[in-house]
Design a protein around this nucleic acid. Structure first.
Lengths: 224, 224
DNA sequence: CAATCTCCTTACTCAACAGTAAACTTACTA
DNA sequence: TAGTAAGTTTACTGTTGAGTAAGGAGATTG
């Protein structure tokens, strides 16, 4: 029944640091499975193999517990992205590619983490909402920076500005979000493959647009 | 204090149909503001100017109430998209453009509806989750169809298939989702402007890719 | 072998809120 | 104008689950 501690006899004593991580581990899976509200602290405590007051002693409240989960997983995700982007090479598109690739790989590998980060954001307190917003902003800024570098490096010069880079970053991040759903319906697809498709969709278009190609809606041929 | 019914004296009697819509109207704003769980049926009833048992009589349960909100707003949104796409003209990219434009306009105009649809999806019961998923699928299919038509119409022929169209649709819908956030940070931008930028990002790139242009990550110049 | 610090538990309290029973009131209709 | 159906209310119940008080047991240090 219990996960940590011996199944029989006395519970093993564990130092706080370690216990906290165990609790958070369990909490992430439970929050992912049930959602924030449907998850009960009792269940988390039981699965973690300890009693409820421990959770409150270490994490303060249900919200504090969730926040701890959020922060840990968000840090991991952002770190994965940033690390890959930095190691990805000099050219911005290579760094962007590496970052996206790391993102999709992370999601594939840590489903529960992603569910918690992705689908539990809203309807929670100020503190939680802003923690999620911060993480998203961090990634957004990173992406916008790469897009901007890409623009700057390209021939045409200042035809696009900060606002455009931000726009593209939002579109990209949103697309990546949504493609995690697509991935779960196509288990055969590797994160790398998904990344490549997305880069092709976006980067090629951006290059063309920078070269002056513009799409505008043609006049209706049949204006009823 | 009350919104419907006279403030003084007896409450006005109202036929069921109308009352239901009033309740749903209020519920949408409350759910949008507080989130599903934090919203209480008592508050909704009070703001609607009636007593709680009415809500249960007409809508069955809190979940039923939420479901009614969801369905109504989802229908409106999907209808807006489809209507615009159908009226948008013959060429797929024009229909897609019209649909996206209608979407951004809808979100700009019905903030609460969008919040309910967008941010309250998860962590709810089977029934609710699948209602949201259905609506998204409907839009997704619509978009994928247009993308597919766009591919078919283009020169090269069958270099892309159903799966690709679905991929692009996911990316597009996700990008649109996320751009609603961008819009709220840029109140000056018109829905039409946002649509145009997005189309340029995606459609131009797609066209180029169809013509055989491919982006692949260059070999690292400095493979550490 | 105290003293005491950290780890840990049992057994509760308490408020919020979904949901309901039962009856009252207004308006239509025959 | 009695009968009835639709609309509406007051005043409850019951459960669930967050959060806590109070104290026990194992390690560590003088």
């Amino acid at each position: 029944m219990t996960v940590n501690g011996r199944t029989e006899g006395r519970r093993r004593r564990v130092p706080r640091q370690e216990r906290e991580q165990q609790i958070i581990d369990v909490a992430v899976t439970v929050f992912a499975k049930r959602g924030y509200h449907a998850a009960s602290v009792d269940e988390i405590a039981e699965l973690a193999g300890i009693s409820k007051p421990m959770v409150y002693l270490y994490l303060d409240s249900k919200e504090g517990l969730f926040l701890a989960c959020l922060r840990r997983e968000a840090d991991r995700l952002v770190a994965a992205f940033q690390g890959a982007a930095q190691a990805g090479g000099g050219a911005p598109e290579l760094r962007l590619h590496a970052g996206l690739s790391a993102f999709f790989a992370f999601v594939a590998e840590h489903r529960d983490s992603w569910v918690v980060l992705h689908r539990q954001a809203s309807e929670l307190s100020e503190a939680i909402a802003s923690a999620v917003a911060d993480a998203r902003r961090a990634v957004m800024a990173q992406v916008a920076g790469l897009v901007w570098d890409g623009i700057a490096e390209s021939a045409g010069g200042a035809r696009l500005d900060d606002e455009d880079a931000d726009f593209v970053a939002h579109a990209l991040v949103g697309a990546a979000d949504s493609l995690t759903d697509w991935m779960s319906g196509h288990p055969g697809q590797s994160p790398e493959g998904v990344t490549l498709r997305l880069m092709n969709m976006v980067w090629v278009g951006m290059g063309r647009v920078l070269e002056g190609e513009v799409w505008v809606p043609a006049e209706r041929s049949d204006p009823t």
